[in-house]
């Protein structure tokens, strides 16, 4: 089952480096005590993932990843942290039973996924991707996936309005 026949190419090397960065960032994110540190290490993970997308020849997606996640989501979270009072130090009283069980559950889940990945047989593809990534994606978006594209824009509008409505300070009733 565990047959290690890895061909050490440059691609694999790059993948390995970026993967380590991503995992380190994620692990640190759950282990830091200060909230802001957690958010920043997670941003580091996002950047490594963008690098991985580049290795996967998905340049446009990498660009959007940096823009959205690192730029928008992380900043949003930091705004949220700043606007809410938080214990900057972690709480002393842990919830050991919950944490232990959660760790066990996640490990089991990972084991299941790992086993599934290992026992699946993936065929070697031979069709290369198109060269100009952004152009091809743009073509696809406006032709085949035009309707989902429009729907997503509606959804973004709705989300924007909804967020504003939710977060608006309530006016005093006379």
């Amino acid at each position: 089952m565990l047959n290690f026949n890895i061909d050490f190419t440059g691609e694999f090397f790059a993948f390995f480096l970026l993967a380590v960065c991503a995992i380190v960032g994620a692990v640190l994110a759950v282990n830091f005590t200060k909230v802001v540190h957690m958010a920043l290490s997670l941003a580091f993970t996002f950047v490594s993932l963008a690098g991985l997308y580049v290795v996967l020849q998905a340049e446009f997606v990498a660009f959007v990843q940096v823009l959205l996640y690192v730029g928008a989501v992380t900043i949003l979270m930091i705004f949220g942290i700043m606007m809410t009072k938080h214990q900057s130090e972690g709480q002393e009283r842990g919830r050991p039973l919950l944490e232990t069980l959660a760790a066990i559950g996640c490990l089991c889940l990972f084991g299941i996924l790992f086993y599934a990945i290992r026992s699946a047989g993936f065929a070697k593809p031979d069709v290369p991707l198109p060269d100009n990534n952004t152009l091809s994606i743009g073509k696809l978006l406006y032709s085949t996936y035009a309707i989902p594209f429009e729907l997503v824009s509606v959804l973004l509008t709705v989300a924007f309005i909804g967020a504003v409505a939710l977060a608006k300070r309530e006016e005093d009733q006379p």
């Binding site: 949003l76 997503v152 909804g162 967020a163």
Partner: peptide, 12 residues
């Protein structure tokens, strides 16, 4: 990704 961003905004 788009959806995730929207959801993050609403969540916050």
């Amino acid at each position: 990704m788009t959806l995730a961003a929207a959801e993050a905004a609403v969540g916050v």
